[in-house]
Amino acid sequence: MNQRAMYSQSFTIKGGDFINAGTVSVRIKRLLKEIGLKPDIIYRAAICCYEAEMNVVMYANEATLDFTITVENITVKLSDKGPGIKNIELAMKEGYSTATEKMREMGFGAGMGLPNIKNNADVFEIESEIAKGTIISFKINLNGKH
């Protein structure tokens, strides 16, 4: 744990589990509310967590989500075991999606998940290794403007 961390917790997310999909994000949101952070910070953090969580459900095998709050920001790091992303620049493009027909029927696959994270976070990074997995990290500042 980082010295200045006020709070930190880890969650596990399972790939392919559409039944529990989203529950980690809902839990994190509840937690942030209990901690008493500002509503718009909570809102943005929850959106970022949700999109990152759904990508694990849709594309990866499993992931660990590490979540830390310091006096300055909320930091979330999601490391998954999965296929990785071949072309990150392409994946970041709004509208690009490799979602299956079945996922699209459910309303996934707009290709807006990663752009949604980028638009709501203050810092956003992706690293990926083919056939190994993907690491998504983002930060939301607690003070100052977005």
Partner: peptide, 8 residues
């Protein structure tokens, strides 16, 4: 009917 569109 697109979930991420609603999120956005």
């Amino acid at each position: 009917d697109l979930l991420s569109d609603v999120i956005a």
